[in-house]
Amino acid sequence: MSDMAVPGGRAVWRGRPDAGQVATSAAPDIRRMLQLALAGVWLLDGVLQYQSFMFTKAFGQMLAATAPGNPGVIARPINWDARLIEHHVVVLNAIFATIQLLLGLGIACRPTVRAALGASIAWALAVWWFGEGLGGVLNGTASPVSGAPGAVILYALLAVLLWPTDRGATPVPFTAARAVGVQAARALWLVLWLSQAYFALLPANRAPQALNGMIGGMASGEPSWLAALDRNAAALTSHQGLAASIVLAIAFAAIAVGVYLPAPAARAAVVLAIVVAAVIWVVGQAFGGILAGGATDPNSGLLLILLALAYWPSRTGAVPRQSLAGHPAEGIPT
């Protein structure tokens, strides 16, 4: 198999039309790659929603459990929604799963990327309220280790930051700034990570055994190696809740201000964000509980990693339409 040039600068691969060949298709830009990663997470979400557990009344009860502690105006719709789902769990859950599947496919399909991202924002906000009780933000139980401020709100944030538009033609310092501008993107990052620092210091999270209980509780139902990892991590944090909370809060604060620093320091802050998010995802969230069955999503750790990648310092900007494989008229901004 070899490649050959043809008139018009087009390159073709010789050999089998669909097998045994390597196509060097247009390498998507970073934003498109992150959009595809987001699409993959939505697709995974949809597949998880088809699990047998979701077709039982336990699904409605799980949603109802997010209501207590929230203000009445927030809690009442959650309870109503949970009752509705308990009564029609099969049909409604099948619809929910299909919607999430379609959101993933829609983001992956270029002509529908805008519509799918827009729909994903609306869907994520609805799930954040009706499915996650606003991530426990208002009832004092939010913990960055367990997924605060709610994994699904991070889907919406990513959709906004990865929106296929460019504010201005000049290169921006990181991908997330392309759609909303540098200042707005930095402000969103600051708010997110400072809120994580705040949640880490909440009384419920700085109690001596808070982190120990949270991590230890994830071991149930997990494969033996992951359960052992969780148990060991829990043992390390036994009676160290306050110290662990302070360390986490300092790390989150450093990450938050990192994007305002010069590129090398900003890069270090993003690396720290990725490392902290990865540790939280594996140890604190056990991959969202997927391996134990019954997970509704991969939880926040994976989304935080994607978000951090969108803030990786690199001069980036609008992709000239001419660069899209020499098809100026076909350029679909992604």
Partner: peptide, 28 residues
């Protein structure tokens, strides 16, 4: 493909003239 024969075209195309990740174009 802009190819000279159906065989060449049917051999499977890459992105037309698109730069590879290394910034070069496959054109041998």
């Amino acid at each position: 493909a802009g190819a000279e024969s159906p065989a060449a075209a049917f051999s499977g195309l890459t992105s037309a003239g698109s730069p590879t990740s290394a910034g070069s174009t496959v054109a041998t």
